Amino acid sequence: MRKLQAQGIHHITLTGADRQTSIDFWEGLLGMPFVFEQPNLDNPDEGHLYFDPGDGRLITVFTNETRKPDPKRTPTDPGCVHHLAINLSRATFSQAVTRLEERGIGHSGVKDRGFMDSIYFKDPMGFLIELACYRFEPPFGCSHADVMIEAHRIRVARGDYNIAEEHLADAIQLLVERRQQTLSRD
């Protein structure tokens, strides 16, 4: 059977509060330029704001001027979206705790995920946001996913519980050796 081959996420749409609260959060805190706005074409009582998360794709937010921020955690039942992870550079990630605290935003502190570091906090509507920073750069011509699949294979073969930096380093070496020739015998 033929697949409907995905080529990346086109956009993600979230339910936000009012227009200004949404702009203040997505652009004001997270630095995502506000690039487009129109009505929600399925609900004339709502606006539809578009933000660029840094890769040219889109995160969109439905707004309603009667909806106010509600910091209660959004549902995490099966079928619900648990959280949204946003990629940060190492330099920006190293400043994230300070910058969140400057704004009085509660957060999880830095969490060690083996192959990346994470910080969690909620948007104005209680939706969990993760700031994520990889602990590695993929070799030239490879993606983060290329490294992750190789690191996973190495981890499983070794019987290790989770991916660690050693698996990443070995995966990167393997990818370079496959891709790049050498005149050396060693």
Rank of each mutant, 00 (worst) to 15 (best):
M32L: 10
P138S: 07
Q180L: 14
G54T: 00
L29I: 15
H48M: 10
F62N: 09
K3W: 03
C80D: 13
L128N: 04
I12F: 12
D77T: 13
G47W: 00
H10Q: 08
K68A: 02
P124H: 04
M125R: 08
S94Y: 06
V81P: 00
I154N: 07
M116Q: 15
N162K: 12
K111I: 15
S22E: 00
Y161V: 11
G126W: 04
S108W: 01
I154H: 09
R2T: 12
A171Y: 01
F34R: 04
D70G: 06
Q20L: 01
C142K: 15
I149Q: 13
P78A: 06
V61C: 03
H11K: 02
K3T: 15
I172Y: 09
F115N: 06
H152Q: 14
G8C: 11
F93S: 07
P71D: 02
Q38P: 05
E150Y: 08
P44Q: 04
E102Y: 02
Q181T: 14
H107G: 08
E150M: 08
L29C: 06
R185D: 13
P78W: 06
H82S: 09
L131T: 07
Q95Y: 07
T182H: 08
G47M: 01
E65P: 05
P39K: 01
C80H: 13
E65N: 02
Y120T: 13
M116K: 04
F93G: 10
N43D: 15
D52Q: 06
G56H: 06
F25G: 00
T182P: 03
T98W: 09
F25A: 01
I154K: 09
M148I: 14
A171E: 06
L175S: 06
S184T: 15
L4W: 10
T66Q: 09
V81S: 09
A91D: 15
E46I: 02
H48L: 07
T21L: 01
A6Q: 14
P124K: 00
L175K: 02
R113P: 08
A151W: 01
S22R: 03
H11R: 11
L84W: 00
D52S: 02
D112I: 09
A17H: 04
E46R: 07
L131H: 08
M125A: 01
L174C: 03
G79L: 00
F115Y: 13
G104W: 09
A17G: 11
I172M: 10
L174N: 13
G16R: 09
G106A: 11
N43L: 00
R178P: 07
H144N: 15
R158Y: 03
E150P: 00
C133Q: 03
I23P: 04
T15R: 08
C80P: 00
G109M: 05
M148T: 10
G159W: 03
R2L: 12
P139E: 11
T13Q: 12
L168N: 06
G8I: 03
P78Q: 08
F140V: 14
I9V: 15
R113D: 07
